[in-house]
């Protein structure tokens, strides 16, 4: 079963770029990705640019509307994701707990919808 692990954290929480801790933090991500790949669980995963760069798009009565910024102005923002192929929710939760941001942020785990043929 495929699960998406959505990585949320507050903008200035956790190790910040330019600090000595940041290098270790990035390395932990590389290690996690390698572990998930080796176990055959990894399907995809990316980090996202900050929400300052986000553009939100909608069609209002057929007219294109764009807004500068993320869909929801919340303290915790989506910063990246992993797509994981796991046996069950327990396995997905155990991987989510290993994502380095879990220490200061939150990981939302959701199953990917499968459409019948």
């Amino acid at each position: 079963m495929q699960y998406i692990a959505l990585i949320y954290s507050a903008a200035n929480s956790g190790p910040q770029p330019g600090t000595p801790e940041f290098g270790g933090y990035i390395q932990k991500y590389q290690e996690f990705t390698a572990e998930a790949q080796k176990a055959g669980v990894f399907v995809a995963g990316d980090a996202l640019q900050s929400t300052d760069t986000a553009t939100t798009v909608t069609l209002e009565n057929g007219k294109l509307e764009t807004t500068d910024g993320p869909f929801a102005e919340t303290k915790e923002q989506l910063g990246g994701y992993y797509l994981l192929d796991c046996k069950d929710l327990d396995e997905a939760i155990s991987y989510a707990a290993k994502i380095p941001t879990a220490k200061h942020g939150r990981i939302e785990v959701r199953p990917v919808m499968v459409f019948d043929q």
Binding site: Y3, D88, L89, D90, P111
Partner: peptide, 13 residues
């Protein structure tokens, strides 16, 4: 849908 297993959990959890 979320794949909550129907099992006795592994000994570590």
């Amino acid at each position: 849908l979320a794949g909550i297993p129907y099992e006795v959990p592994a000994s570590d959890i």
